[in-house]
Design a protein around this nucleic acid. Sequence first.
DNA 1: CAACCTATCTACTCCTGCGTAAAGTAGCGA
DNA 2: TCGCTACTTTACGCAGGAGTAGATAGGTTG
Lengths: 207, 207
Amino acid sequence: MTTGTRRRLAPEVRRRQVLDAAIAVFSEEGLHGASMDAIAARAGVSKPSVYAHGGTKDELFAACLAREADRLMSSMTAAVLPDGSSGEDGAQQRLRRALRAFFRAVTTHRQGWTVLYRQASTGEFAGPVDAARRSIVIRAAELLAAELGGSVEAAEPIAHTLVGAAEGLADWWLGGDHAPGEQEPADLLADMLMAVVWPGLDALRRV
Amino acid sequence: MTTGTRRRLAPEVRRRQVLDAAIAVFSEEGLHGASMDAIAARAGVSKPSVYAHGGTKDELFAACLAREADRLMSSMTAAVLPDGSSGEDGAQQRLRRALRAFFRAVTTHRQGWTVLYRQASTGEFAGPVDAARRSIVIRAAELLAAELGGSVEAAEPIAHTLVGAAEGLADWWLGGDHAPGEQEPADLLADMLMAVVWPGLDALRRV
DNA sequence: CAACCTATCTACTCCTGCGTAAAGTAGCGA
DNA sequence: TCGCTACTTTACGCAGGAGTAGATAGGTTG
């Protein structure tokens, strides 16, 4: 790994490198299992450089969480907001689009998802992370309440169920290695989840 | 914490005390956050005693996982196996009973569940834990395949979805504090989950 | 081409916390 | 009453890893 020549890069570029390496290592080893030395090695950089660009280990971890949470949130937000097809598109369409965006983001940046979902659920970083999660759940609850009737509070447990189901399915998909199918996997996963939950949600509407 | 009188107890009893204390501390602090001193203090016992009865920190943690996983597994197994009402009871009934058992176990032993679900999902203990989880998923998949038709492999993603949904709902319930309602909360949660997913599962049967 | 700024590296310090050793004390059976 | 031994207190060895100080060298500007 000794390139022999040590290169000076723009701080922004180095910071990006360090963040990427940190996410990779954190996703494999967890917050405590990862050492700053390992992150430095992965980034192809010395440890003081990691401190210079990423700060303390905790700050670095927080930065990873922030970046990945932001990425995920903005993907889903972008998918739901613009009503692409003009005219009325019901809750079913919007829900499916949100799920597709979720699965696409998760399958595309699996390391980031792993850090958010498995490594940050506990400890002092639980707060920020499930703030983001909660934000997703609230959106889902609002969508459900608007379309199925009832208050947002009443829809909250259902939204948690839905989000949990999506996480479970994503986790399964990321766990095994799957042969590349003919269709985009994310869309397939979204359709599968919709097939399971939508009839039930639809039935709740006409109670 | 000095009781003044120090009591001699049977090794089995002491071991139980240590395990209970360990689960309590691990559930609050996580594997790395918990110190052996803290566990000793919680158990009302000196640190060497913890080592005498619980072994190494890792061994102790593994023992906690084993006990709680076993508790959960046997609860659910017991709930599904004996067909209480004679005669045919369909997949819907068995599924509901399994879910009730799950939610009952989780709400009853929340510390144990926390250790399994949040603290052990990463690191070197991921293996044993999601072996147990996988076992539950397989059972669910078998049940679904038997009743809805199709192979077990095809039912696997659906089973993961189902288990994820249950975990999400349980996590939500354990997160907030809820006023004691008129009905057993576990049964309420199971009914809620069934309402969401069963119509979809039922629809899959007649494809 | 020389001076200089600063990104980067090598090589430390220091602290936390696991795990254990040694010596003393007190419950409980004989 | 005597001892066996589970248990406690206290102190320490040791490893791993976070964070830093000082040296080094890439690039840049006059």
